[in-house]
């Protein structure tokens, strides 16, 4: 009989991949920036998670530093961490163009309907952070 992967091994392979667990345990750019130019905290009303983003701009208007803060699950924390890697060196206009597709590609998983909001919490926070500047 051919062996098929059990639902458990597939969850290990799919949702909690090694790169997600690494970002969750040691999220990049974690910690508030004391002199942020832009800042916003986004919460998920379903679970009470909160992911905040501080952004520091350089003289050239590009993102010089990012500081993540708050409290989230593995998916929302890893997703925000990966997103923060993308942001360094971008203009706000470029950052504003990051979309759902790119965030999910970074994660490398389909979070499914119950966890989609977690996966996109950081992106939602980023968009609201940037809209403060462009408002």
């Amino acid at each position: 009989m051919a062996s098929s992967p059990s639902p458990l091994s597939s969850v290990r392979e799919q949702l909690y991949r090694a790169n997600i667990l690494e970002h969750y345990k040691k999220p990049h750019h974690w910690g508030r920036l004391p002199k942020a130019d832009l800042s916003h905290s986004e919460s998920n009303p379903v679970c009470g998670d909160e992911i905040g983003i501080d952004i520091k701009l350089g003289h050239d208007g590009r993102i010089q530093a990012v500081g993540l803060f708050g409290s989230g699950c593995a998916i929302s924390t890893a997703s925000a961490s990966m997103l923060s890697d993308r942001l360094i060196g971008m203009t706000l206009a470029q950052a504003a163009k990051i979309d759902k597709k790119q965030v999910l590609a970074d994660l490398g998983i389909d979070p499914g309907p119950t966890r989609m909001r977690c996966a996109l919490l950081g992106l939602e926070g980023l968009r609201k952070t940037i809209s403060q500047k462009t408002r």
Partner: peptide, 12 residues
């Protein structure tokens, strides 16, 4: 996070 716990339990 409880979400992660809940997701894995759901797979069970």
């Amino acid at each position: 996070h409880a979400h992660d716990v809940g997701t894995i339990l759901d797979r069970h």
